[in-house]
Design a protein around this nucleic acid. Sequence first.
DNA 1: GTAGCAAACTTGTCGCGACAACCATTCCCG
DNA 2: CGGGAATGGTTGTCGCGACAAGTTTGCTAC
Lengths: 163, 163
Amino acid sequence: MDTPWLDRPQLRAWVRLRAVLELLPGVLDAQLRRDAGLTEFEYYVLATLSETPGRTSRMTELSWGTNATLPRLSHVVTRLEGRGLVERFSLPEDRRTTHVRLTDDGWEKVRQAAPGHVATVHHHVVDPLTPEQLDQLAAIADAILARLDPSGTTAAIYTRYDE
Amino acid sequence: MDTPWLDRPQLRAWVRLRAVLELLPGVLDAQLRRDAGLTEFEYYVLATLSETPGRTSRMTELSWGTNATLPRLSHVVTRLEGRGLVERFSLPEDRRTTHVRLTDDGWEKVRQAAPGHVATVHHHVVDPLTPEQLDQLAAIADAILARLDPSGTTAAIYTRYDE
DNA sequence: GTAGCAAACTTGTCGCGACAACCATTCCCG
DNA sequence: CGGGAATGGTTGTCGCGACAAGTTTGCTAC
C-alpha cells in the first residue's frame, strides 16, 4: 500500500486543527467545572434536554443529540440523576426504552450555567472569526462529519440549525 | 451581566464544530490503537521526536510541540519508556531538565504506524475538503488558537508549516 | 554564602470514557 | 405461540488525563 503523505497546505491545516482538537475542549470543560460544577458533556446533556419538547428524551435519541455512545450517556445520566438534575422513567408501551426528564433543579442549573458557557464559546470561537469564516467553518465541519458518520443519523440532527 | 446568545449562523457553526471535537479524536485514536497499539497522543509524541534533530527533545519543548501539559507528557513518556520506545536522560549542564530520545524501536514503531494514521487523516479530514477549504480551515484554526494560547508559545511552533 | 525563589519535572489521587459483557423486552416467523 | 434474533440499556473493568502536591536543581540578592 502506497503512503500518500500530506503536502504543505494539508499539513498546515491538519496541524492547526489538531491543536484546536487538543486545546479547545479542555478550556470549555474547565470553565464549566469551575463556574457550574458541570462537565462540558454533562452541560450539553442538560442543555439538549432543556430544548426538547417536554424536557424529555429517550436515551438513544439523547445520545444522538449529544454525539455520545449509549454506555457513556448511561453513566452520565446516572450521575446527573444522583444529583437530582434529571430523572429516569419508562413507559408501559415499550419497557425496553428509558426516558430522561430534566427536573426543575436541572432546568435551574442549566439556566445558571448557560451565560458563562455561551460567553466562553463567544470568546474562543465566535469572536475571533468573521461571519464569512463562520459559514466556512459550518461547511467544513459538515463535510468532515459526513465522513465520520456515514449513516447520517447524527448529522440529520443538525439540519434543524439550517436556515 | 447581559447574555449574548448565539444567532443562527453562529449556532450552526458551533454545533457542527462541537460534533467534530467530540467525534474525530475518537476515530483517530481507535485506528492507532487497533493498528499500532498506540494512543493518538503517544503517536504524536513519537512522531514529533522523529522530526526533531537528533530525535531528542527536552520535556518542556516536547510539551509545546504536542499541546500537552507537563504532567501528562511525563506520564506518557514513562509508559513509552517502559515499552522501550523512548529513553530519558539528563545533561550535567542543567540537571533539572530531562531530555527524551526516540530509540530505534521507537523510530521503527512510528515508521510502521505512520501510513495508516496518515491515511485516516486523509480520509476523514483532507479528502472531504477542497483545497480552498483547507486554506480556510488553517486560517480559522489559527484565529481560534490565538485566543486559546494568548502567549503564543504554542502557536509559534506552527509557523514552521507556513510557506 | 546562604536564604529565598523560580524552573523543570515527577508522583499520587480521582473521575470520566471506551470497550466488552450482560440483561430485559419486543419483534418476527414458521 | 414458541424460539431465536434484534432492540434498548445497564454494569464492570481498565487506562488515560487533570489537578495538586512534592522534589530537585539552579538563580539571585543581600
